[in-house]
Design a protein around this nucleic acid. Structure first.
Length: 886
RNA sequence: GCCGGAGUGGUGGAACUGGCAGACACAAGGGACUUAAAAUCCCUUGGCACUCAGUGCCGUGCGGGUUCGAGUCCCGCCUCCGGCACCA
């Protein structure tokens, strides 16, 4: 008969092993009760720490990108709580935007067929928020939920509208007609920042076209220089890479403004150039096809029909950004000439498809000899080439040149500047232009105004009405918010606001006459340009934020998010802050002291020529290489499958569901895994095998701590007076662990090495022999506190099992004891000619001579030297000895 | 084209300010326990060679250089990644 285990014994065994299911919910409840994450407004006795993580769009499903982002934030929040800061850790929802609206459209169709009431985007959004919130709580991320905001709720967007009006009244928002980006698939316009460099839509990937439309803009281009200047303050706190991306995006270029004149009419034609040194080489002028002067100059001339037709054609060709970049250079002569003010020469005026109306003045002086694009254009149309910069080592012949000469050289045929080195003369030329009153130094920027209107329903309505009599009128503050109507038809094409009579028809706030509301809504990036301010006083009713709360909490001490926002959200957010600073609402100009950009989570995705992207489970055969399958075939069609390591995404079917992982391993283990192995700013590879490794570590630590629980003595026990050498050994490792973990976090959130250090400490503890209970307790408890930010439920549970009544987050972050790190002897390597040959052990306080003597007396070394006299002995005390022989 | 960043074992990665390259893991191999498996525990694991308890040589993308000493600094390349790009 088999021996039967008693129920009590089984219970005992289960109790002993790590059971995350039994502890995670319990501690989450405890933290809520003790209000661990409640930020205390205006508390003077502690320093504040504002840790902001980019809030999510509430898609309803948590993905791995959120997990790395919010785990990082939470670990820092808990670490700063342990360091004694008054921490602000808010969370909210970027809840306006296309997906909710698209879902409503899709759903409206289905609901109609079934005769059901369609789900409104607001309900859909709130449902998703509720679900994501439970997922976030389950992950153990600590937020002050009392400060939750959702940008789609009227109590939030009321203030988004208020801020729009503030900008409007101060000349920072205006409606103007301009060539703008149109995404057909999103059925709306987009800001420049939201078009990728390949000319596709940042959201949906469709090609973006150019259209001339009347739209709302924030005058962000005015802030180009201020945004650049602000980088000085951000350096050190922000990743250099992000600063550089913003610099590229803002695109400052220094040069000169030069005023040409139309020979035939006397009209002024100013241009911008970065090469004023080549002014004497101008042989023609190019105008953008949209340039307003074209119509004026040609009206009634014999060339009018031809030129206007050509210009029209140029404007029509290549409406997508990509097509435009690939266009062949084309142009047409206007029949007019311009006068070059530096030498009085008349040169022909052309219209050219490469001249951009949106940069500089829409007119470009052409110097074919020294600009490649002008050179190609000149060759194509037989325009003259004139050399005005002479290289030292060759003679340039305009007839035989095959490309423009763009390197430095001596200026020639250049009036008063003949003989000067062009690079050195640039500034003098700009000043000379100013003296002659024909131009002067000028700086141009690539950054454009921020196009904020969107032809969509699910966004904050722009609070403007159009009155037949009064024209464009701002909605009075008292009438805010301009609420989104509920009686909208999501099945009608176009913007549903346009077909909502209750919304569109209104009376003019000024004259009371009939008026129409603006039906465009705001870009969701407007919502996210001030949410961090709202968090400071989220329930404030009379204004967007309470200045005293903002003064206390701002600026953000650490902002965590993805680098994909470098030239979108992170530019807008800085622009908004600067504008509010200039308007006197804020007393700081930069919103975040430190920025941390986490890496992406990647996994192998599989592609089959016929079935396209297929999930990993549908790959048959092949070889396993780590977590990836190589040389497998598609289970559906049998075709070959190729693997590609790429960011986890729904479209490539390589997602890992955080919920499933937490079901299997618990939140702590997922958190630990996310931070192990890879530094947080690098892309990480999702690996089930490594996840197992994190699981094993937690269990080992649990077993070690739980098994030792009975032998650790009292929680308050003091260290004994006399320590054995084993005691000192373990204490040294404990304190070294504390030092290394602290340095890893402070030195750039290197959690991967912090975790390694704790693993080493655990290995040392497990290998240690007889040690005093208090020394063992110190080692175990140190590990728990060091890991508490990363695996908080786990640490809390063991902490309480070790006899502590209070939460582990009520203790403080340990400090290492320099005394404990000291050793009596140290071992250093000995090299001969820079190659490691032996090791010596010397007393810790040994001087240079002692190191030298010990090295030369070492058996292996003397054998190696074989009596040869060393030429030189280099001693780096406590580091190494290097003996140089011939 | 311009401007950045990166390249270290089979894999993720470690290495303070020029001072023992490969910490800590994963994978792999071997062993213990087990009827068996899982789990766990122990050992091995950069490459090559040899007279294999050990010893020697090589080794941080490639080629040079500085230095007693280079993954780290300098010069010249290669590859990959990112940003900007008809921007005057």
């Amino acid at each position: 008969m088999e021996p039967q285990l008693h129920q009590a014994d089984i219970q005992g065994l289960i109790m002993e092993s790590y059971d995350f299911k039994a502890i995670e919910g319990k501690w989450q409840e405890r933290w809520r009760e003790m209000e661990l994450f409640a930020a205390r407004d205006g508390e003077k006795e502690r320093d504040k720490y504002y840790c902001l993580t980019m809030y999510p769009y509430p898609s309803g499903v948590l993905h791995m990108g959120h997990v790395i982002n919010y785990t990082l934030g939470d670990v820092i929040v808990r670490y700063q709580i342990l360091r004694g800061y008054n921490v602000l850790s808010p969370m909210g929802w970027d809840s306006f935007g296309l997906p909710a609206e698209n879902a409503a459209r899709k759903q409206a169709r289905a609901a109609k067929e079934r005769g059901e009431e369609p789900l409104h985007p607001a309900d859909f959004t709130e449902k998703n928020i509720a679900h994501m919130k439970t997922q976030m709580e389950r992950a153990g991320w600590g937020y002050d939920w009392a400060r939750e905001v959702a940008t789609s709720r009227p109590d939030y967007y009321r203030w988004t509208q208020w801020l729009f009006l503030l900008f409007y009244k101060n000349g920072l928002a205006e409606k103007k007609t301009a060539p703008v980006n149109w995404c057909e698939s999103c059925a709306t316009v987009l800001a420049n920042e939201q078009v990728l460099s390949d000319g596709t839509c940042e959201r949906c990937g469709a090609e973006v076209e150019q259209r001339d439309l009347n739209q709302w803009f924030f005058k962000m281009s005015r802030y180009a220089q201020a945004l650049l200047d602000g980088h000085r303050e951000l350096r050190g706190g922000w990743p250099e890479k992000v600063i550089r991306m913003q610099e590229d995006w803002i695109g400052r270029s220094e040069g000169a403004r030069v005023v040409f004149r139309i020979a035939e009419t006397g009209d002024e034609l100013p241009i911008f150039t970065t090469r004023p040194d080549t002014l004497w080489g101008v042989t023609f002028m190019s105008l953008a096809p949209e340039h307003p002067l074209i119509g004026k100059l040609l009206k009634g001339t014999e060339r009018e029909a031809e030129v206007m037709a050509a210009a029209k054609k140029m404007r029509a060709q290549g409406t997508s950004a990509r097509e435009q970049a690939e266009l062949e250079k084309e142009g047409v002569w206007t029949g007019c000439h311009v006068i070059n003010p530096v030498n009085g020469e008349q040169v022909p005026l052309w219209v050219a498809n490469f001249a951009l109306m949106s940069y500089g003045t829409g007119a470009v002086m052409a110097v074919p000899a020294h600009d490649q694009r002008d050179f190609e254009f000149a060759r194509k149309y037989g325009l003259p080439v004139r050399v005005v910069i002479r290289p030292e080592d060759q003679e340039l012949d305009p007839e035989r040149m095959t490309e423009a000469y763009v390197d430095p050289g001596t200026m020639t045929d250049s009036g008063p500047f003949d003989g000067r080195l062009n690079t050195g003369a640039m500034g003098d030329i700009a000043r000379w232009l100013a003296e002659k009153k024909i131009g002067g130094p000028e700086v141009n920027y690539r950054l454009r105004d921020w196009l904020l209107s969107r032809q969509r329903y699910w966004g904050a309505p722009i609070p403007i009405v159009y009155c037949e009599k009064c024209g464009e009128v701002a909605v009075p503050e008292a009438d805010l918010p301009v609420e989104l109507p509920l009686d909208v038809d999501f099945q009608a094409p176009g913007n549903p606001l346009e077909t909502s009579p209750s919304f569109v028809n209104c009376s003019c706030p000024d004259c009371g006459g009939p008026a129409r509301r603006e039906t465009d809504t705001m870009d969701t990036f407007v919502d996210s340009s001030w949410y961090f301010l709202r968090y400071c006083s989220p329930r404030e009713e009379g204004r967007p934020f309470d200045p005293s709360a903002v003064r206390y909490w701002m600026p953000v001490d650490l902002y965590i998010g993805g680098i994909e926002h470098a030239t979108m959200h992170l530019i807008y957010f800085r622009f908004f802050t600067r504008a509010l600073y200039d308007l006197g609402l804020l007393d700081f100009a930069e919103p975040a002291r430190k920025l941390f950009c986490q890496g992406m989570v990647c996994k192998t995705a599989y592609y089959c020529e016929k079935c396209q992207w297929i999930p990993g489970e549908k790959v048959e055969g092949g070889e396993k290489e780590g977590d990836a399958i190589v040389g497998g075939s598609c289970s559906a069609c049998g075709g070959p499958v190729r693997g590609e390591m790429t960011k986890i995404s729904k479209s490539k079917l390589n997602i890992v569901d955080p919920d499933r992982m937490m079901d299997k391993y618990g939140a702590d283990c997922v958190r630990l895994y996310m931070l192990s192995d890879t530094p947080p700013d690098l892309d990480r590879v999702w690996s089930d095998e490594r996840m197992q490794g994190a699981w094993r570590f937690l269990n080992r630590l649990w077993d070690t701590a739980a098994a030792a629980a009975g032998e650790l003595g009292e929680a308050s026990a003091e260290l004994p007076e006399k320590l054995s050498s084993a005691d000192r050994d373990l204490r040294r490792k404990t304190h070294n662990g504390i030092r290394r973990v602290t340095e890893a976090i402070e030195g750039g959130f290197r959690f991967n090495t912090a975790i390694s250090s704790v693993m080493e400490l655990l290995n040392a503890l497990r290998a240690s022999g007889e040690v005093h209970p208090a020394v063992r307790r110190e080692a175990v408890e140190s590990m728990l506190v060091l890991l508490a930010p990363i695996v908080p439920h786990f640490s809390e549970e063991l902490w309480s099992r070790l006899g502590h009544k209070e939460s582990i987050f009520k203790t403080s972050w340990p400090e290492f004891d320099p005394e404990a790190l000291k050793t009596e002897e140290i071992e250093v390597p000995v090299q001969v000619n820079g190659k490691l040959k032996s090791r010596i052990t010397v007393p810790a306080g040994a001087g240079e001579e002692e190191f030298k003597a010990a090295a030369l007396n070492d058996g292996k070394i003397s054998e190696f030297l074989a009596g040869k006299e060393p030429l030189k002995v280099i001693v780096v005390p406590r580091r190494l000895v290097n003996i140089v022989v011939k």
